[in-house]
Computed example of a mutant assay.
Amino acid sequence: MRLHAVRKVHGTGENAVTALDGITHDFPSGTLTAIMGPSGSGKSTLLHCAAGLDRPTSGRVELAGHDLTTLDEVRLTKLRRDRIGFVFQAFNLVESLTAAQNVELPARFARRRLPAAQVTAALDAVGLADRARHRPGQLSGGQQQRVALARALATRPAVLFADEPTGALDTTTGRHVLHLLRTLVDQHGRTTVMVTHDPAAAAVADTVLLLKDGRLTESLTLHPGRLAANTATIAGRMAQLEVA
Rank of each mutant, 00 (worst) to 15 (best):
residue 152 A to V: 05
residue 142 G to I: 02
residue 166 T to N: 00
residue 128 L to I: 14
residue 159 V to D: 03
residue 185 V to R: 08
residue 119 V to H: 03
residue 147 V to F: 10
residue 140 S to T: 08
residue 183 T to L: 15
residue 139 L to I: 04
residue 150 A to F: 04
residue 186 D to E: 11
residue 136 P to Q: 08
residue 133 R to E: 07
residue 130 D to Y: 14
residue 174 G to P: 08
residue 139 L to T: 00
residue 138 Q to I: 06
residue 129 A to D: 07
residue 147 V to N: 02
residue 118 Q to M: 11
residue 179 H to E: 13
residue 156 R to A: 13
residue 143 Q to W: 04
residue 133 R to D: 09
residue 176 H to T: 12
residue 162 A to R: 01
residue 164 E to H: 08
residue 148 A to Q: 06
residue 178 L to K: 10
residue 134 H to E: 08
residue 147 V to R: 11
residue 164 E to K: 02
residue 151 R to Y: 04
residue 163 D to V: 00
residue 168 A to G: 06
residue 130 D to N: 11
residue 125 A to E: 01
residue 155 T to H: 15
residue 137 G to S: 07
residue 154 A to G: 05
residue 185 V to N: 09
residue 185 V to G: 00
residue 131 R to E: 12
residue 134 H to T: 04
residue 168 A to I: 03
residue 131 R to D: 12
residue 127 G to N: 06
residue 145 Q to I: 04
residue 138 Q to C: 05
residue 179 H to K: 15
residue 129 A to W: 08
residue 167 G to Q: 03
residue 148 A to L: 10
residue 184 L to I: 00
residue 138 Q to R: 14
residue 135 R to I: 02
residue 133 R to I: 07
residue 168 A to M: 04
residue 180 L to K: 01
residue 133 R to A: 12
residue 170 D to G: 00
residue 155 T to Y: 14
residue 154 A to T: 06
residue 125 A to Q: 10
residue 116 A to I: 11
residue 148 A to S: 10
residue 139 L to S: 05
residue 116 A to T: 13
residue 187 Q to M: 14
residue 145 Q to A: 02
residue 139 L to F: 06
residue 157 P to W: 11
residue 118 Q to V: 15
